[in-house]
């Protein structure tokens, strides 16, 4: 199915807290048997990763980063899992694609169960569900209140990437990010020079679909600025 209600009680698996998360099973290549610890932690998250196109293109660009896709739809998650297993098997000789994986989760509810404060460097929101109806706006992935949770997970200087083909949603996301005191918009010059923006425009399945239909793609990127002094 194309949609999943982010408010309902899905039978989800999530750790009680970020320390309890078993990252070894997702990134076995980055687990050190000697110390019994992970050598890296996830620093890039693709929220609502869909069919995983972005993960796959980001993988060789950030070989030193662990990249996690979060997807709420079960079948889609299973598909991405299979896709990554196949890629890893086909590239077993050089260990590529060891740094990406996917998990089924509801990022709107359980992001803090997976990530420590300031853990993430980049968060991607690519072609999110537009939730056109006004009544459903709280179900959008970018809202004032959720942005505070993303700001918690992002480190200072960390970046939120958004892309959509729906102008109305683009304006909504940009407006809420602009209004949020912990984010600052990055210029279009910056966007033009950033390799992730290029990948995001071209790599995702949704992006390709829009390309085929010759639709518009709207990009907005924001940097996590430092917390102001507590009053």
């Amino acid at each position: 199915r194309a949609h999943s209600n982010p408010f309902s009680d899905h039978q989800l698996e999530y750790p009680v807290n970020p320390d309890e998360m078993d990252w070894q099973k997702l990134y076995p290549h980055f687990f050190d048997e000697a110390t019994n610890r992970m050598t890296k932690q996830v620093t890039i998250a693709d929220i609502g990763c869909g069919f995983g196109g972005l993960l796959i293109d980001l993988s060789p660009e950030f070989p030193e980063n662990l990249i996690l896709g979060m997807e709420i739809r079960v079948q889609v998650t299973n598909y991405v899992e299979d896709r990554i297993i196949a890629l890893r098997t086909n590239h077993a000789d050089n260990n590529s694609f060891q740094n990406i994986n996917v998990l089924r989760g509801n990022a709107m509810k359980f992001l803090p169960n997976f990530f420590h404060k300031s853990q993430l460097e980049k968060m991607f929101f690519c072609f999110p569900d537009p939730h056109f109806k006004q009544r459903k706006h709280k179900a959008r992935i970018i809202t004032n209140t959720l942005l505070s949770e993303y700001a918690y997970a992002l480190k200072e200087g960390g970046i939120i990437y958004t892309i959509t083909d729906v102008l109305d949603l683009h304006q909504w996301m940009a407006k809420h990010l602009e209004e949020h005191p912990l984010f600052e918009r990055l210029s279009s010059d910056w966007e033009d020079q950033d390799k992730c923006v290029q990948i995001m425009r071209n790599a995702t399945e949704e992006g390709k679909k829009v390309e085929r239909k010759k639709g518009d793609k709207y990009v907005a990127c924001f940097v996590r600025i430092p917390n102001p002094e507590i009053v």
Partner: peptide, 17 residues
């Protein structure tokens, strides 16, 4: 969840358990 007030956009932490 623990949040600063009145700067409610700054989350201090979660208490997990």
């Amino acid at each position: 969840r623990i949040t600063h007030f009145p700067q409610t956009y700054i989350i201090d932490k979660w208490l997990f358990g």
